[in-house]
Nucleic acid binder design. Structure first.
Lengths: 155, 155
DNA sequence: GATGCTCCCTCCCAAGGTGGGAGGGTCAAG
DNA sequence: CTTGACCCTCCCACCTTGGGAGGGAGCATC
C-alpha cells in the first residue's frame, strides 16, 4: 500500500503521515527500492487510532502515550482513563475561557444600538481601562483574566 | 515613558509591544537619540484597548479594524457590532467543537473501569474504525467531524 | 571614572499542527 | 516512449507568544 492509499484508508493526510513519521509518532515506514513508503493493513489501524484521537482533540504527545498503551496488552485501564480525564479537563478549561469571552462580548453587544450613530458600548468597553496593569512579580489577575490562560489555549 | 513602563501601564508585554509595532498594528513609536522607544499617555490608552480586545479573544487583524473604528469618530456603531457578532459566532463555533470532543470523550471514559485490568472502552473507541476515509473530492464527514473544523480553530 | 545593575535594542528560535509549493524521480497505462 | 498520476525531500506560511543571545544605554554607588 502506497502512502496515498494509506491516507485514504485512514483519513490522515499524506502530509501528516510524513510529519508524524518525522517526529517519531509513527515508526519509520518500510520503503520500496525507489524510496516509496509501504504500509500494511495493521499500519492503517494505527493511523485510524491517531486520526480518531486527533478528532477528539488529543495533542500529539498524549497520542503517543495512548499509542503505547494501546499496544501494551498489559496496560491498566486506569492509566488510559487518566489521560482521557486530563484531556477532558483541558477541554473544559478551554471551553470555560471561550465562554467567558463570548459572554462578556455578548453583554457588550447587547447594549449596542447597531445603527448609524457612533456611540457604542462595545468600543467604550474595549477602551475602558479594565486592565490595571499586571504587577509582574505576582500573578494577580484572577479567574476573569482570559489572556493569562489565553496563550496556553492553542486548541 | 519607556517601553517597560508602557508595558506595565497597559498590561501588554514588552515583547508584544515590539511585535505589534513590527506588524503595523501600532504606529512606529518615537525614539530617543539612543534608540529607546518613547510612549505617551495616549499611547497607553490604545495599548489597553488592544489588551482588552485580546482578552476577549479578538484576533489581531480584527483588532486592527476595531482600532480604526475606535479612532474614527464618525463610525457607525453598526459596524462595530458586526465585528463583535462575527467574533461571537467564531467563539460559539469553537466552543461547540470543543464540547463535542469533550462529550464524546466523557462518554467513553464513563464506561471505563479505570482499574488494573487492561480492557478499556476508551482505547477500543479510539481503535475503532469510526473514520471511513474521506473521499477527498467531496467533503462529506458531517457535523460530528471535528477535525475538518479542527485546524481552523487555533483560538 | 570604574564597576555593577537594570533596562533597552535587534535578531533568531521555539511551539502546535497543517497546508502549499518547488524541483525532481517513479510507475503504469496508452 | 510519452503522459499523467503519484511519490520523494526540502522550505515556507500560518498565529501569537515567550525565551534567549549578544551588545548598548542609563543611573547609582563606590
Amino acid at each position: 500500500m502506497n502512502i496515498g492509499e494509506a491516507s485514504k484508508a485512514s483519513g490522515v493526510s499524506v502530509k501528516m503521515l510524513r510529519y508524524y513519521e518525522s517526529i517519531g509518532l509513527l515508526p519509520r515506514a518500510q520503503r520500496t527500492e525507489s524510496g516509496y513508503r509501504v504500509y500494511r493493513a495493521e499500519d492503517v489501524t494505527a493511523l485510524r487510532f491517531i486520526r480518531n484521537a486527533r478528532d477528539l482533540g488529543f495533542p500529539l504527545d498524549r497520542i503517543e502515550a495512548l499509542l503505547g498503551l494501546w499496544r501494551d496488552r498489559t496496560r491498566a485501564s486506569a492509566e488510559v482513563k487518566l489521560h482521557a480525564e486530563a484531556h477532558v479537563a483541558d477541554l473544559d478549561e478551554k471551553i470555560a475561557v471561550l465562554q467567558q469571552m463570548r459572554d462578556a462580548l455578548r453583554h457588550l453587544a447587547a447594549h449596542c444600538h447597531g445603527d448609524d450613530r457612533p456611540d457604542c458600548p462595545i468600543i467604550d468597553g474595549l477602551a475602558g481601562s479594565a486592565q490595571p496593569a499586571p504587577t509582574s512579580r505576582s500573578a494577580r489577575r484572577p479567574a476573569s483574566a482570559a489572556s493569562a490562560t489565553y496563550a496556553r489555549i492553542g486548541v
